[in-house]
Computed example of a mutant assay.
Amino acid sequence: MLHMITDVLWTLEDTIRLGGGMQMPARATIVRLSKGGQSGESKLVLHSPLAIDDETARGIARLGKVEWIVAPNCMHHLFLKGACERWPNARVLGAPGLERKLGEGVRFEALPSEGPLFDGEMAVRRIDGAPSLAEHVFFHPGSRTLVVSDLVFNVHAAPGFSLPLFLRIVSAWKKLAQSRVWRLLVKDRAAAAQSAEDVLRWDFDRLVMAHGDVVEANAREELATALTWMRHLPSPPLSARTTG
């Protein structure tokens, strides 16, 4: 079922099953751009697609035409093939590295590391320094919304006990937080820190993530706090410091 956030922003929510009995709340995001196509039909961006049935597809069609399908990192690809089959004329953009998981099943254009996208109505920034994930985040100035996938979680409820236990272990349960798993994924702290600072320069007030509750206000300040580890580099060892 589609959920309207604003007149240009909708979400589709479901629960996906992961290993170890975990059931993760998940969200796809749909952004309607202000510039329509030649027919005047609104153009849509489908971010991180989930399983979409015929009824939901008809609801999406009432919003406009899916012009772009986005797989924003190397984990959010499970339902990409189904979305591409449903909208075969859409352009498919994916995180570099996904080709190793998708094989020949789905062809896509690699997302750029940064810059304007979707007729210039949105912008993208990759979180550098963690190539195995290749997380890309997106800014929609028209609604002052930042759209992320796994950069942060904000999960306050989940079925079963496996996911709550896991999120407690990685310090990301019942709060807006960055999973401690990032500390294993990041191989270049300086590059990751610069990416985070670049994202925080955008003027957003709403944060929509793939897993957890949407943050409707003061999102930039809350995200800055959630990204404290990523933004702050460790001090060099005492032996490496110079004295005056």
Rank of each mutant, 00 (worst) to 15 (best):
P112T: 09
L111P: 11
D128K: 11
P131E: 06
R144A: 14
S162R: 12
F118N: 01
S143E: 14
P116L: 09
V155Q: 10
P131A: 13
E114R: 14
I127M: 13
V152M: 09
D128Y: 02
E121W: 00
F108S: 10
H136A: 06
S149N: 02
G129P: 03
V124R: 02
E135W: 03
F166E: 05
H136K: 00
P112C: 02
A130V: 00
R126N: 06
I127F: 05
R180T: 12
A134F: 02
G142I: 08
K175D: 12
F118P: 03
A134M: 03
V152T: 02
F118K: 07
A130Y: 04
W173S: 01
D119P: 01
F118C: 08
S162L: 12
F161L: 13
L111E: 13
S132R: 07
F138G: 01
S132E: 12
S179I: 02
L163N: 01
G142M: 13
D128F: 00
V137D: 05
W173L: 13
F166L: 11
G160C: 08
D128E: 15
H156I: 15
V137I: 00
A158I: 11
I127A: 08
V124P: 06
F139H: 14
A172M: 10
G120L: 09
H156N: 06
P131R: 01
A130I: 00
V170G: 01
P141Q: 05
D150K: 08
H136S: 08
A158D: 05
L165W: 04
V147Q: 08
G129E: 06
V155I: 15
K174A: 13
E121V: 02
R125L: 11
V137N: 00
L146H: 00
P141C: 01
F139A: 03
L146C: 06
K174D: 10
R125N: 07
L146E: 07
S162N: 15
L133S: 08
R144F: 14
L117M: 15
I127T: 04
L165I: 09
L133R: 14
P141F: 03
D150G: 04
E114I: 05
A157W: 15
R126G: 10
A134T: 05
L167F: 05
F153Y: 15
Q178L: 00
S179P: 06
G142D: 06
S113T: 11
G160W: 12
A158V: 07
R144K: 15
D128V: 04
V152F: 09
A157S: 10
S132F: 09
E109M: 13
K174V: 04
G160E: 07
M122N: 03
P164I: 12
R126S: 05
G115L: 04
E109T: 08
S149I: 03
H156T: 15
K175H: 11
N154R: 06
K174T: 04
S179T: 12
F139P: 01
L146Q: 01
H140R: 03
D128N: 09
A130W: 11
F153R: 04
S113M: 07
S143W: 00
N154L: 10
V147S: 09
F118I: 01
L151I: 00
F108N: 10
G115A: 08
S132K: 11
V170H: 10
N154Q: 01
F161P: 06
P141K: 02
V147F: 08
A110C: 08
S149G: 14
E135I: 12
S113I: 05
